[in-house]
């Protein structure tokens, strides 16, 4: 199988707290991979490790056959990323913010308009970023990730803070990306109902452990086998997490 991102027993410990626990995920080239989990599951931490923002305590991963720290610059050149909250220069306008990123990546000027267009921010490109509304900042962050149409996108809860139509819009955008140009998307969310509409494969994380990995059909299949109704995948997701939490409590008592 051709995995563009593959992690192997990836683990992150903060002091005595294990945030990510032996996680092995496999993202197929050209697919959309939904990364699911409740608050504090370790989704952002995993993504930060993939971007070299924090070093893994244990385990390894490769991105397009490359590894940190040796290939740091090469890897980052291929990834457009958006982690947690949008990052921007408050003293610059939306366009100027993208221009800084564009210059760092050494891209052509027209990529800025392309990215603004994609996220629907063209109209507000000349407003100072600090004067943006929450949703506009979010869109600016996404535009920064999409700039130059990188082959890999790592998006951490990109629809946070958007209005319903904005969520819809961004969801459609993400969904259309692999058709628009050749790219792979790793996207995280709390809601399976949202991911269900975009993703080809999903990984479910809880308390740092990967509970499930596979396609949506695999998930339906295993739900049926466990005697659950497979009609509502959100319920399946919640019950998987609940079962795991119950098992953890049980273990903690022993």
């Amino acid at each position: 199988m051709d995995y563009i991102i593959a992690t192997e027993q990836l683990t992150k410990k903060y002091k005595n707290f294990t945030s990510v626990n032996h996680v092995s995920i496999h993202v197929r080239r050209g697919s959309i991979y939904g990364f699911l989990g409740p608050n504090g599951a370790g989704k952002s931490t995993t993504m930060k490790m993939l971007l070299g923002l924090t070093a893994p305590t244990k385990g390894r991963f490769t991105i397009d056959g490359k590894q940190f720290p040796g290939d740091r610059l090469k890897i980052l050149r291929e990834i457009g990323s958006f982690i947690e909250a949008p990052s921007f220069y408050a003293n610059l306008t939306g366009r100027e913010n993208l221009d800084v990123i564009r210059r760092i990546l050494g891209l052509r000027k027209n990529t800025i308009e392309d990215a603004l267009e994609l996220v629907g921010l063209s109209e507000f490109g000349d407003r100072l970023a600090k004067k943006y509304s929450l949703g506009m900042k979010q869109r600016l962050g996404l535009a920064g990730a999409l700039l130059g149409r990188p082959p890999i996108l790592i998006l951490d809860e990109p629809t946070n803070g958007l209005d319903p139509s904005g969520i819809h819009e961004i969801r459609n955008l993400v969904k259309s990306l692999p058709d628009l140009y050749d790219c792979t998307v790793l996207i995280s969310s709390h809601m399976l109902s949202e991911i269900e509409l975009m993703a080809d494969d999903i990984g479910i994380l809880n308390h740092g452990r990967l509970l499930f990995e596979g396609s949506l059909d695999d998930l339906r299949h295993s739900a049926r086998q466990a005697g659950m109704s497979a009609d509502n995948l959100e319920d399946v997701f919640l019950s998987i997490v609940e079962q795991d939490n119950a098992a953890r409590k049980q273990r903690a008592k022993l």
Partner: peptide, 17 residues
């Protein structure tokens, strides 16, 4: 301060620079 405000520096860490 201009890097920390709006946490722009976090983006810088994710860029090839």
């Amino acid at each position: 301060h201009l890097e920390f405000k709006g946490s722009a520096v976090k983006k810088m860490y994710m860029l090839p620079m």
